[in-house]
Structures are given as structure tokens and as C-alpha cells.
Computed example of a mutant assay.
Amino acid sequence: MQTTVFIILGLFILHWYASLFFQSMFHHRYAAHGMFTMSNFWEKTFHIGSFVTQGASYLSPYAYGVMHRLHHAFADTEEDPHSPIIDKDLFAMMWRTRKVYMDIDQEIAVVGEKFKKGVPKWRSFDRFAESRVTRLVWVAIYVLAFILLDAPWWLWILIPIHVLMSPVHGVIVNWYSHKYGYRNYDVKDTSHNLFPVDLLMWGESLHNNHHKFGGRPNFAVKWYEFDPLYPFIWLMDKMRIIRFKNNPATQYM
């Protein structure tokens, strides 16, 4: 029993950090903000990596990128896709975010060209990865894994989190990082930094810093802050998987 619990919790932790790695690095810092460039080969590789790690909660990098640009442009206003100022609770915010995301993803939303320019598009892959059948297959894989591992009943609560992993990550940042924490900068929105050392969210909760310096690949600014994803991005630049557009050591400093 103890070994089973360790295996299931280990798989959960792996899913949490692997899926968020792609969401933060590829969807957020690349698709939405264009902090670095990459070849078409690597772009498609990261699309596939996002699908493998996000599973049932796969997010289209195109729809995510456009929606996140809208968030920065209209933060904490009626046009913001997600804001604790506008929505009464986090479930209402998640539902409204889903509506905005779906409208962008289905390309029925009227969005200015500046919000779509340069955002990576692989729409045929998105349609496959986001199809109802594909998502249900992923759910079946999660359930089957728990059955084969003979998971104790109390660990089954993790299944919904596996299924909704990407929205769970999003709500932690977009709800809690706009309500709690500390602020280094007096920006025109409610963004806060949840943690000075953000080991839980790959640096995404250094949100106030990010809203101040939207194009800076390192979300840590103060000496006591640490963005755990940035060293991996720096290494990928050295390996020429990606290329920084500007010198990340001095950008916006």
C-alpha cells in the first residue's frame, strides 16, 4: 500500500510540473510574449510535448497566446478574460475564461490583429488534441492507471485534478496572484507576487514582476526572488533550441 501511494503521488507531481513546464515555457513565455524564437521543428516538438504532458487538459498555444495578450492589455477590466475583480468567485472566473478561450480557439471571437500576430498556429493538431474523443481517451488512461495500481479510495480525488490540470494551474495564478502576496511595482492592475521563491508554479506566481516587465524571460527581479524555470530556458538558449531576442541579463533592468 505504501509503495502504491508513493508511486501515485510521484506520478501526480510529475504530471503537475511537466505540464506546467510546457504551459509556462511554450504557451506563456513563447506563444503569448515571444520572449525568444525557435525553429518550426522545435515549435511543433513543443506542441507535441504540451499534448503529452497536459493530456486531457491540453490547451491550444494559439488560443492561450491570444487570450493571454488580451489579459495583459485589459487586466482587471470587463474585457479581461479572467479577473477576480470582475468575477465573484474563482469558479465564475474559470467558466468565463473557458468561454473566451473557446471563442478564440474556434476563431469566432473578434480579436484585433495585434493580438494574433506571431502566435504559433498548428490548428490541425489542436483539433486532434482538443477533440472530445482524445480527451476521453486521456481520462480513461488516468482511471486505468489508478485501477492497475490499486489506488486507495482517498487518492481518487487526484483524478479530477489530472483531468483539469491546465485550468487548475491557470486559476492559481490568475485568481490568487491577483488577490494575495506582495507587490514590487505599482502597476495598473491587481497583480501580486505570491512567493519570493516560486517552486510550486515554475515562477508563474511572480506575477507582479511579470506584469511590470511583460517581455522579460526571468520573472525574478529582486535579489531574494527566484524563477525556477528561467535556468532551463537559459540552458535551452545555450543549446540553440531557442534563441533569446534580447540579452536576458539586462532586459528591462
Results as ranks from 00 to 15, higher is better:
L20M: 14
F21N: 03
F22D: 01
F22Q: 02
S24R: 05
M25A: 13
F26I: 06
H27W: 08
H28Y: 07
R29F: 03
R29H: 09
Y30F: 15
A32V: 08
A32G: 06
H33N: 11
G34M: 11
S39G: 12
W42F: 15
W42G: 01
K44R: 15
T45Y: 09
F46M: 13
H47L: 09
I48Y: 06
I48A: 13
S50K: 02
F51S: 04
F51P: 00
V52L: 15
G55D: 01
A56M: 06
S57A: 15
S57R: 01
L59T: 07
S60R: 05
S60P: 03
S60E: 01
P61A: 00
P61M: 01
Y62R: 05
Y62G: 00
Y62W: 12
A63Y: 00
Y64Q: 07
Y64F: 15
G65E: 01
G65I: 10
T77V: 11
E78T: 12
H82A: 13
S83G: 06
S83V: 07
S83D: 04
I85P: 00
D87Q: 12
D87R: 08
K88R: 15
K88T: 13
K88D: 03
K88M: 12
L90K: 09
L90R: 07
F91T: 08
M93H: 03
M94S: 15
W95N: 12
R96T: 05
R98S: 13
R98I: 10
R98Q: 10
K99T: 06
Y101C: 00
Y101W: 08
M102N: 15
M102Y: 14
D103E: 12
D103H: 10
D103T: 11
I104P: 03
I104N: 00
I104K: 00
D105V: 07
E107I: 04
I108S: 09
A109L: 07
A109I: 09
V110L: 11
V111C: 09
V111D: 03
G112V: 05
E113V: 10
E113N: 10
K114P: 02
F115Y: 14
K116R: 11
G118Y: 08
P120Q: 13
P120M: 13
W122Q: 06
W122G: 00
R123G: 07
R123W: 10
R123L: 13
R123Q: 15
S124A: 15
S124P: 04
S124V: 14
S124E: 13
D126K: 06
D126R: 03
R127M: 11
